[in-house]
Design a protein around this nucleic acid. Structure first.
Lengths: 334, 334
DNA sequence: CTGAAAGCGCTTACAG
DNA sequence: CTGAAAGCGCTTACAG
């Protein structure tokens, strides 16, 4: 492995000049620059990142805690990670993966990684309604950005990027309305989830705006599972609500709904229009395909990295992105 | 942030002694050690990893290229990543994520990450039959270990860990046999895939061993999709093979089979026993649940890290692990 | 525009 | 068992 010193010797300049050729080429006379670059190429020189980091005390590494929630499979994690990685690389950075216990128990791990200079900061995801991590990091002065808002707070404890769940639900309602549905139900989660309330509110408000009924048409599941989605659907149907549309808070719940509909001989996309959330791989795997709201992963990742790595001052550090409705057979015109 | 020097001053010893307290505590007299440790704790000292790495020229980071194959969702990637991360951490290491173009076009990225000392070596996965990466890395002398064998080679180009696909298929056949099935079909991929031939061979050999018919009972799909799995199932049924069992090469194909069976009013786990491969989240999501062969992720990850980070000399660098049959409703006794 | 020097925070032979 | 010194490979003021 060639070093700066060797390149300098080869190009007959000082190490400082080689360093400048790499980091501030405009400071060199064109002919010097060219000579140095030739030596760099000839010796196949690559700057040692550790030496650089030691000097500048920036490692250009961003920590991300790989989630491990056995009961909640992260169906779009691979998409998110790829987008995050690509966005980081566009700024010369990379993602360092680590594991940590959930909640506040994991914070020493975050602290340690930062203190030992393994990372410059963190991207948080899987943000929970009472997530304690944000306030903790803020207090320690450790840089971070959150994918997802901390709902219990009136003011957010730090910079965040999120997808507009209310707008997503509203888009789903409007779409079902436009395909002829007039009695559109909502299958959600408990009130304690801020994310769930956001999406629920979007459904309710859009229904009202369109003059559609909402009372008796929403139901809260205890957990995000197929069985709960099926149970909720059964309950709605058994109550004689005469639905013709269902907006489900997640693809998993939507799939549960789909199963129950199929069991009763009801075809999604004919008698009932159905939509999910997240556009997970599951959505494309069922038949009919599930209409779902896609999170714009590339944009999300780009904003996260931009905020974390210190965009030009004055850049807003709170960004709400719009989901995109991906239309498939489950919401075909009735 | 406290430094070694500050800790040394506080404990009234030399920096060397503090370093030893951390890296070779047995060299210190117990009372000195205790005094140093007290200072370390008091000053909340954390060794700077960059400085250490610069000196030792080991970064304790392992590169992993996050796959992005739009047409082949990596359904168990989150499990794999979590296991890999945890295994790395057990040795004080971490995973650095990066993106690279597929095949040989991506190799300069690997080379660069290694040359600039961002990583010590790589874990490869998504190994393809004609994967050029292994030989390339070997030639460059860049450390790596592969999850999955390179099938075209007679001798493997480097250390690997893999799951015994033939044994997996055999387990599936035996299980279906034990639940009363006697005409067990195989739905696979093209011959060009080594992985597919491995699993196919396991089905064929186990059937022969049990005295079961195989001719006319295997079919190759063009790609790993629901539709292909459904098509293959339809073809087998239409040919009047009177199947009572299906071993599918993947969960995706199995789900396709399940769809076709359901469409024809055939219940998996009653008239026909069905198994998949990989125990992806999908397996648990359908109804009936899909019996599938789980890859032992924690073991795989542990072996990968052990091999890559230089286990004691003489440790074998080729390890074939056994999958585990996870039994669900799709193979209930007929 | 170019160069000599200091220093980032560690570890590692080597002496004592 | 403990310490003084060199050095890992860079970058960054500072002089010239």
């Amino acid at each position: 492995m060639a070093t700066l010193k060797q390149v300098a010797a080869h190009a007959e300049v000082s190490v400082q000049t080689v360093s400048n050729a790499l980091n501030a080429p405009h400071r060199l006379r064109p002919d010097t620059l060219e000579r140095v670059n030739k030596s760099i190429e000839l010796l196949n020189y690559r700057p040692n990142r550790n030496a650089r980091s030691l000097r500048t005390s920036a490692v250009e590494l961003i920590g991300y805690c790989v989630p491990n929630w056995p009961n909640q499979t992260h169906l779009v994690m691979d998409q998110f990670l790829h987008a995050l990685c690509a966005a980081a690389e566009r700024t010369g950075r990379h993602i360092l993966l680590f594991t940590a216990p959930p909640g506040v128990d994991g914070m020493p791990t975050y602290d340690d990684l930062h203190a030992r200079r393994l990372v410059d900061g963190f991207v948080l995801s899987q943000t929970e309604t009472h997530d304690p991590r944000h306030a903790w990091l803020k207090e320690q002065g450790i840089p971070f950005v959150s994918f997802g808002r901390v709902w219990k707070e009136t003011t957010q404890p730090g910079p965040w990027v999120d997808v507009d769940g209310a707008a997503g639900s509203a888009m789903a309602v409007r779409h079902l309305y436009e395909t002829g549905r007039r009695r559109i139900a909502f299958i959600g989660w408990p009130k304690s989830s801020g994310l769930a309330e956001d999406r629920y509110g979007g459904w309710r408000d859009e229904c009202k705006k369109l003059g559609l009924q909402t009372t008796g048409l929403s139901i809260r599941c205890r957990e995000d599972s197929l069985d709960e989605g099926a149970r909720a659907t059964a309950a709605l149907l058994d109550a004689g609500r005469e639905l013709d549309g269902i907006v489900a808070l997640s693809d998993i719940l939507a799939l549960g709904a789909l199963r129950e509909l199929t069991r009763r001989g009801i075809t999604a996309g004919r008698e009932i229009g159905l939509t999910g959330f997240d556009d997970s791989p599951l959505a494309d795997v069922v038949s009919p395909g599930l209409t779902s709201l896609r999170q714009p992963m590339d944009d999300i990742a780009g904003e996260l990295i931009e905020i974390l790595t210190g965009a030009p001052d004055g850049t807003p550090t709170e960004r709400l992105l719009q989901p995109e409705l991906v239309i498939r057979g489950s919401s075909a015109p009735g």
